[in-house]
Nucleic acid binder design. Sequence first.
DNA 1: CTTGACCTTCCAGTTGCTGGAAAGACTAAA
DNA 2: TTTAGTCTTTCCAGCAACTGGAAGGTCAAG
Lengths: 127, 127
Amino acid sequence: MNISAASKAAGLPVKTVRYYADIGLVSAPSRSDTGYRTYDDASVRKLIFIRRSRAFGFTIEECRELLDLYQDQDRTSAEVKRIASKRLEELEEKQRELKSLHDELAHLVKTCRGDHRPDCPIIDYLG
Amino acid sequence: MNISAASKAAGLPVKTVRYYADIGLVSAPSRSDTGYRTYDDASVRKLIFIRRSRAFGFTIEECRELLDLYQDQDRTSAEVKRIASKRLEELEEKQRELKSLHDELAHLVKTCRGDHRPDCPIIDYLG
DNA sequence: CTTGACCTTCCAGTTGCTGGAAAGACTAAA
DNA sequence: TTTAGTCTTTCCAGCAACTGGAAGGTCAAG
C-alpha cells in the first residue's frame, strides 16, 4: 500500500500520516526500491487508532501512551481508564467554561438591539 | 506608566502587551528618552477591552474589528451584534461537539472496570 | 513518449503567545 | 560611589499539531 491508499484507509491526510512517523508516533514505514513508503494493514490499524484517539482530544503524547497500551498484552485496564478519566475531566472542565462564556455572550447578544445606532451592551461590557 | 504597570492594570502579561503592539492590534506606545514604552489610561482601556474580548474566544482579527467598532462613534450595534452572534454560534457548535465527545467517553470510562486485567472497552473502541 | 497523478524531501507558515539570552536603565541601600 | 537588584530593551526560538508549497523523482495509461 502506498501512502495515499493508507491515508484513505486510515481516514487521515497524507501529510498527517507522514508527520506521525516523523515524530515517532508510529514507526517509520518500510520503503520500496524507489523510496516510496509502503504500509500494511497493521500500520493502518494503528493510524485509525490514533485518529480516533485524537478525535477525543487526546494529545499526541497521550496517543503515544494509549498506543503503547493498545499493543501491550500485559496492560491493565486501570492504566487505560486513568488516562481516559483525565481526559474526561478536562472535557467536563471545558464544558463548564464554554457554558459560562456562552451564557454570558448569549445574554449580551440578546439585549443588543442590532440596529443602526451605536449604543451596544456588548461593547459596553467589553469596554 | 511603564509596561509592567500597564500590564498589571490591564491584567495581561508584559510579553502579551508588547506582542499586541508588535502585531499592530494596538498602536505602538510612545517611548521615554531611554526607549522605555510609556502607557496612558486610554491604552490600558484598550488592552482591557482586548483581554475581555479574547476571554470570549474572539480571534485577534475579531478583536481588531471589535476594537475598531469600540473606537468608532458612528458604529452600528448591528455590526457588533453580527460579530458576537457569529462567535456565539461557534460556541454553541463547540458545546455540541464537546457534549457528544464527553458522553461517548463517559460511557466508555463507566463501562471500563479499571482493574489489573487487559480487557478494556476504551481500547476496544479505539482499535 | 508524453501526460498526469503520485511520490519524495525540505522549509515555512499557522495561532497566540511564551521563554530566554544579552545588554542597557533605574532605584535604593551601604 | 559602588553595588545589587529590578526594571526594560531587542531578538530569536519554541510550543501543538499540523498544513502548504516548491522542486524534483516515479509510475501507469494511452
